[in-house]
């Protein structure tokens, strides 16, 4: 196996420079007693000098929407905020690939929205590998790899997966509410990613129906 061209077994440090991992539980991933020190931790390890470190820490904290939190202590933050601090720590170090290990599974609804919103904004900037049980977190993905019992079952686009009822059933995957509703209404679940788009499609159809009558 190779990550960004390096073998993790023989060159772990090269891999760690290029791969940032966001873990399930943000509580145990934060090292320093203050937010800004924690965000700087990865940069300190890389040996980045202080001036550049300051700029990159400020930028990363800004990118996750936590400006003003620099001197807060992690135990005073909510789960979503902690996960965003962890994310800022990864972003500051500037990895090519972000691997997310169920980053929202230990968060409440508000925390999930915060973290997913920030991740959404990062999609264009680098490769993101997102492991999750929630299909709605993957509606915008380029590729979905379905794993079952440790085996790769399929490598498809979200559109294909959402319209393949058998594949979903075999892997005990549940369609997100919006897509399920679209399917039940006889609309294409793959194209209607957001509740807004679904609503618009339903309105359009209602208008057509009214016109036909």
């Amino acid at each position: 196996m190779r990550v960004a061209g390096y073998d993790p077994a023989t060159e772990p440090y090269e891999v760690r420079k290029r791969l940032g991992i966001l873990f399930q539980n943000p509580e145990n991933g934060l090292v320093a007693p203050f937010v800004e020190d924690d965000v700087a931790f990865g940069l300190e390890n890389l040996g980045v000098d202080r001036e550049e470190m300051r700029a990159r820490v400020a930028e990363a904290i800004e990118a996750v929407g936590l400006s003003g939190y620099e001197r807060r202590e992690p135990h005073t933050l909510s789960g979503g905020e902690k996960q965003r601090v962890a994310l800022a720590g990864l972003l500051a170090a500037g990895p090519e690939i972000l691997a997310l290990d169920e980053p929202t599974s230990m968060l409440d609804a508000a925390g999930r929205r915060e973290v997913l919103g920030r991740l959404q904004a990062l999609r264009a900037t680098r490769t993101i590998l997102h492991a999750t049980h929630h299909l709605e977190e993957l509606v915008d993905a380029d590729r979905i790899l379905v794993l079952n019992g440790g085996n790769l079952v399929s490598d498809v686009t979200p559109a294909r997966l959402f319209s393949d009822a058998e594949l979903l059933r075999e892997n005990r995957l549940v369609l997100p509410t919006v897509q399920r509703l679209a399917l039940e209404l006889g609309l294409s679940p793959a194209e209607l990613r957001t509740p807004e788009r679904l609503a618009r499609a339903v309105l359009a159809r209602a208008a057509r129906g009214a016109g036909a009558r």
Binding site: P12, N28, D37, F41, G47, D49, M53, V57, L90
Partner: peptide, 16 residues
């Protein structure tokens, strides 16, 4: 988490 963030002891480390 520390290892995945590149921690390898005090050698070659800078301070924030």
């Amino acid at each position: 988490a520390m290892e995945s963030r590149g921690y390898r002891g005090g050698e070659g480390r800078t301070r924030y």
